[in-house]
């Protein structure tokens, strides 16, 4: 199966490396308006670099196209790819608005192509295990769950994350991982309340606290942080009537390397999660989506799930603005 990539930022390069190592996929071209980025991804994936996606689609004729562009560009390109009959793997969040998401889903249905959205947390083995444990009843009935996702302020090409109209901010871009995950555990949301603290300028940060009440009674409490000075950290605690499940990236490091060389350049190297596995979660995600294309099966996370997560994220943003709880998926006041 021939797979091309549009957008060669951090995610595009991650996709390129994983697809290049996957037997099921033939990486067929990578594209970025920034030719240097395209060259970097092409080198990482052993494929051709393009700076014009139309030229790439023409020359490579892929079966599947991965969309790793800034969020505000998803809608236009996904609809165009659908028209061209390409199956699509699109980075999260699905889009900036529910109208965009609906238009994307409808176009893919209309042109008979598959649309997958990269809610990769479903493919993180610690989260996948947690979902399985809860589904098996290890924690009992619904209770109170906490989720945490802290990282540095992302510095995308042209600082597009800094522009709320392009990224949507920390809730839409980062917390949406946990929103999707907690929804996969507890089902449909009833009400969302949220508050945010943020600052722009030289040293920006954005911190959000969101509480979701689910229709099954469960309470999900989520914290997300752009501008955290420490290493990227995720943690969750799911408490139910029969037990508690906890996971924490900070305490499940299976490898710790400490070198006397560290700091010789005057500054410690970038810290990376020290929990090595044979394949990273993106590999699992891409492999799963390609299998779904091949055999027509339903993915573990659908485009409709991505839309539902976006709906909750947008409701949380609205709650931050109005200071009021926001009802989900209904016409209740």
């Amino acid at each position: 199966m021939k797979v091309s990539i549009i957008g060669c930022g951090t995610m595009g390069i991650t996709y390129a490396k994983n697809l290049a190592s996957m037997e099921e996929a033939d990486l067929a071209g990578v594209c970025d308006v920034d030719a240097a980025r395209a060259e970097e991804a092409a080198a990482a994936g052993g494929t051709n670099a393009y700076s014009d996606y139309k030229a790439m689609l023409e020359a490579e004729n892929p079966d599947v196209v991965c969309v790793c562009l800034p969020t505000y560009l998803h809608k236009r390109i996904v609809i165009e790819l659908a028209r061209l009959g390409k199956h699509i793997i699109c980075e999260k969040p699905i889009g900036m608005t529910l109208e965009d998401a609906d238009a994307m889903i409808e176009a893919c249905r209309q042109y008979g192509v598959r649309l997958f959205v990269g809610h990769v947390v479903r493919f993180f083995p610690n989260y996948a295990d947690a979902a399985g444990q809860v589904a098996r009843g290890e924690t009992g009935g619904p209770g109170v769950a906490h989720f945490k996702r802290y990282g540095s302020y992302p510095r995308g090409n042209g600082l597009w994350y800094h522009d709320r109209s392009k990224s949507g901010g920390v809730i839409l871009d980062l917390m949406i991982h946990d929103i999707d995950f907690v929804r996969s555990v507890y089902g449909e949301a009833d009400t969302v309340y949220a508050a945010k603290a943020q600052s722009g300028g030289e040293d920006p940060f954005e911190y959000a606290l969101v509480t979701i009440r689910f229709r099954n009674g469960a309470i999900g409490h989520l914290a997300a942080y752009w501008g955290y000075p420490g290493p990227f950290t995720t943690a969750a605690e799911i408490a139910g009537s029969q037990g508690v499940l906890r996971l924490d990236s900070a305490t499940s490091r299976s490898l710790v390397v400490t070198s006397r060389d560290e700091g010789r350049e005057g500054k410690a190297a970038v810290q990376v999660p020290q929990s090595p596995m044979r394949h990273d979660p993106y590999y699992r995600e891409l492999k799963h989506f390609l299998e779904c294309v091949r055999d027509g099966s339903e993915p573990v996370v659908t485009a409709e799930d991505a839309r539902a997560a976006l709906e909750i994220a947008l409701a949380a943003e609205r709650s931050c603005q109005t200071g009021q709880p926001v009802a989900i998926g209904g016409n209740r006041p």
Partner: peptide, 12 residues
Amino acid sequence: VIASLDPSWSRP
């Protein structure tokens, strides 16, 4: 300042 607090009797 914004804040949140979990006061639940959730320890099994």
